[in-house]
Design a protein around this nucleic acid. Sequence first.
DNA 1: GCTCAAACCGACCGGACAGTCGGTAGGTGA
DNA 2: TCACCTACCGACTGTCCGGTCGGTTTGAGC
Lengths: 207, 207
Amino acid sequence: MSQHLTDLPTRSQATAARIVAAARGLFVASNYADVKVDMIARAAQVTKGGLYHHFASKEDLYVSMMLDDLDNKRRLFGQAVAATGSCRDRLARLTRDFLELPDEERELTRLVRRDINTFSGAERDRLVRAYQKALPEQIEAIISDGIRDGELAPGDARVLSWSFVALVEVVIGRYADRVLGSTDAHLDYVLDLFFKGAAAEPTGRKV
Amino acid sequence: MSQHLTDLPTRSQATAARIVAAARGLFVASNYADVKVDMIARAAQVTKGGLYHHFASKEDLYVSMMLDDLDNKRRLFGQAVAATGSCRDRLARLTRDFLELPDEERELTRLVRRDINTFSGAERDRLVRAYQKALPEQIEAIISDGIRDGELAPGDARVLSWSFVALVEVVIGRYADRVLGSTDAHLDYVLDLFFKGAAAEPTGRKV
DNA sequence: GCTCAAACCGACCGGACAGTCGGTAGGTGA
DNA sequence: TCACCTACCGACTGTCCGGTCGGTTTGAGC
């Protein structure tokens, strides 16, 4: 190994990375069952045998790909959690970081919810846990602070964080993405709706 | 045909209905690919041959099942659209009608979004159109009225309606369902969040 | 330039599963 | 009771695809 003292990628690592990249593109475009191992291999310029030299199974490849990505996202969004400022500002930062991701990486987030029923037992749990650590839990942390500081009305932080995630997913949908235009418009829509609601003017009436 | 002057179900119709009912239960529990035709047949007390006597293909069975159900929902939610009253009241009625549906029928709504990528071309479009007619379009109609009457702030009614649907889907999730308890609590959560937002108090500040 | 291991190849295997087809059962009308 | 038609049966088939395995290539170290 000429590379044993550096962290330049070895040939093996480069091939594995090529396979993962090819898999990402295909899995984003179609669901788990419709992506064939042969397609991934061809897209990655490897044969099936070569692919299986690096990954134990199709499921292993999928899970590796997702866990890598979710760990990156966890680190990325962790910055917003660690940031100082109002709850709204920190949520804005996190959401902006998300919206400015390359299309493919942003779309990957949908996959967990789309394909999660495909897996069973241990692998499924690993995926769910990684997803929760990357997104809902970090948003929940910010929202909990918001509630504690009186910026948000008291409520279940986890349900609120899932609601927030759901709203973000709406604005990255095909139609909403087109209607809203700029990233700033997306951001304003989500934050305004989440904080102030859709009513025409602040209603002060008792419930 | 002894039944030709009545609308009592014939033996054939009864069997077809049994198959559809069995398919519903199984498709709600697992995704399209994981439900085998043999399982549906067994659950419906028919053989595979019998099943294929009534439906041209697995896809045909799935689509028939969904179109039937979506048409029922379209009629059900149409009542809220036709109702008089404030935008909030009509949305509340529609949402309550939805939340009070039997579990299985409520869950069916998720399937469209879950399995839609499984199909291609014509069948896919039919499903999407039926779904849009049943849910987003009817909500959009109510929301458009709300904007026109000044009850809601100006905005894209379709994006708002999808946001509303997304919030409803959150509260029927496992965790939120448990935390919120009663149907009324679900309803209040969704409507308050959608209309007034999550902020602690009505903010009057200029944007 | 020889050696050995890791990387890679691709024809093949075997199980799963949607769909078929030749046949039987049951009921209806003449 | 006979003729006929629809409903239903279930063993079988063809295909698709994840995974395997005996082999070849590559290149690092000596």
